[in-house]
Amino acid sequence: MKKILIVDDSKTARMMLKHWLTALRPDATILEADGADQALAHMKQPEGEWMAFIDYNMEGLNGMELVEALMPFIPATRMALVTANFQAAVQDRAHGKGIRFMKKPMNPKKVQMLLNQMEQAEVQ
């Protein structure tokens, strides 16, 4: 079963991403989280083939700290940092961990591109 996790403190951002993901992957289960706590709570039922779209600037753990915490559950190549904070320093940190990076604002094309890359990636 395909599970896609959207982590963003903005309800708007989650809503838009969910809208596009539902259209592109109608069979996947799409789960939302407004931050690290909710995201990690979803990991209590870890079974399934996971992908995650994660925002960077959030209260509590930031996106990269959350990526670390999710590593035991989701392969790095199946996680993407999706943020307006596209500073080279942030992008480098993401690439250093082997996760993908996409600059907001999102659109269906960018979502499709990330899905393709994540689905084709080798899982280490």
């Binding site: 403190d9 903005s10 708007t12 951002a13 600037n57 959030m58 209260e59 943020t83 307006a84 904070n85 596209f86 500073q87 080279a88 320093a89 942030v90 907001k104 604002p105």
Partner: peptide, 29 residues
């Protein structure tokens, strides 16, 4: 939604500024 627009627009601006001077800016929510 406005917060998200502001977040995207202001971060774009700050990120290009940070990259230009080769350093990092921490941004709040």
């Amino acid at each position: 939604a406005l917060c998200e627009v502001g977040n995207i627009v202001l971060n774009a601006c700050l990120a290009s500024l940070a990259d230009m001077i080769g350093s990092e800016l921490q941004t709040d929510i």
